[in-house]
């Protein structure tokens, strides 16, 4: 009896093994038709969207006291897109920030979400040209198939780094990118333009300025416990960067407070129309 059971177990085991073997071949074959992608995701470290924005007493800078910093929301779409591409065709994801040591928790969060390694380029990101120059140097020393940026950082609202970076590297650039399909070395991107959309074709490598649509809001991932644990052991390297720049923030101020609100009775919309015409001169 015992012997029989053992041999049956052996047989099922060997069947299981051959199935795993077969599945591996299928996966290998599927991947050999696509390209393993070395992806760089550029991440800026910005105040949380709910943060109250205050400036230092001399108006020279943001008062970061009590402000929580997060991955720039536009960059979350790029990071998730990178994960989708890696899952579909294999590859590695590097996240990069140009900034001081205070940005490392943001990079760790990106590692917890699923990036493989992180790079912090140690420099003061005084303006977009400085940031782009530093990223360009890193890209030239490594080689990436795809560089995913966000359309804009929600702190200084520059919307400059990705287009500058692409121009410096002479690479194709798609801004306000709301869709990206890859087929080997060929990319088809959908971009939001004033009043509609454009479909653009380019060869990799290329630079993307992404936003919602690149992946959907519901696809965005938050770090889970396992991710947080493994992020601690993933590499976060620091490279020395250079400072410089052509612009200087001379002063920051808050916009003038809005005046009082005129309430109009719901039964009297004619009054609203009159006010919009005569007082606000808006119609």
């Amino acid at each position: 009896m015992k012997v029989q059971i053992k041999s049956r177990q052996k047989r099922t085991k060997s069947i299981q093994k051959s199935w795993i073997y077969y599945a591996r071949i299928v996966i290998w074959w599927a991947k050999s038709n696509t390209k393993r992608m070395n992806i760089l995701v550029c991440i800026s470290h910005v105040p949380d969207t709910t943060a109250k924005i205050n400036f230092t007493a001399d108006g020279s800078a943001l008062d970061a006291n009590g402000v929580q910093f997060v991955i720039n929301p536009y960059d979350e779409f790029g990071l998730t897109k990178a994960l989708h591409i890696k899952e579909a065709q294999g590859g590695t994801i590097t996240v990069l920030n140009v900034g001081g040591p205070e940005t490392e928790p943001t990079l760790r969060k990106a590692l917890a979400i699923g990036a493989d390694s992180a790079v912090r380029i140690n420099a003061t990101p005084t303006d977009a040209i400085t940031v782009a120059q530093n990223i360009k140097n890193h890209i030239q020393a490594n080689s990436y198939d795809l560089i995913l940026c966000g359309q804009e950082s929600i702190d200084y609202n520059g919307g400059q780094v990705p287009a500058m970076l692409a121009a410096m590297l002479n690479l194709p650039f798609v801004n306000a990118c709301v869709g990206l399909d890859l087929n080997g070395n060929e990319a088809t991107a959908k971009a939001e333009i004033d009043g509609g959309h454009a479909t653009l074709k380019a060869n990799l490598p290329m630079v993307i300025g992404g936003k919602k649509g690149l992946v959907e809001e519901k696809d965005l991932r938050i770090p889970n416990m396992r991710g947080i644990m493994t992020a601690r052991t993933k590499p976060l390297s620091v490279e020395e960067g250079s400072n410089g720049g052509l612009t200087k923030a001379a002063n920051f101020a808050k916009p003038a407070a809005k005046g009082s609100t005129t309430m109009v009775d719901a039964g009297n919309v004619e009054e609203l129309v009159r006010l919009l015409h005569e007082e606000a001169k808006a119609i």
């Binding site: 105040p47 924005i53 400036f55 943001l62 929600i154 702190d155 200084y156 609202n157 052509l246 612009t247 200087k248 923030a249 001379a250 002063n251 920051f252 101020a253 808050k254 916009p255």
Partner: peptide, 15 residues
């Protein structure tokens, strides 16, 4: 220029 999504106004020098 506008900064911090309309929560701030930046005066910037271009050199």
């Amino acid at each position: 220029r506008g900064a911090f999504s309309s929560k701030g106004i930046e005066t910037i020098e271009l050199h």
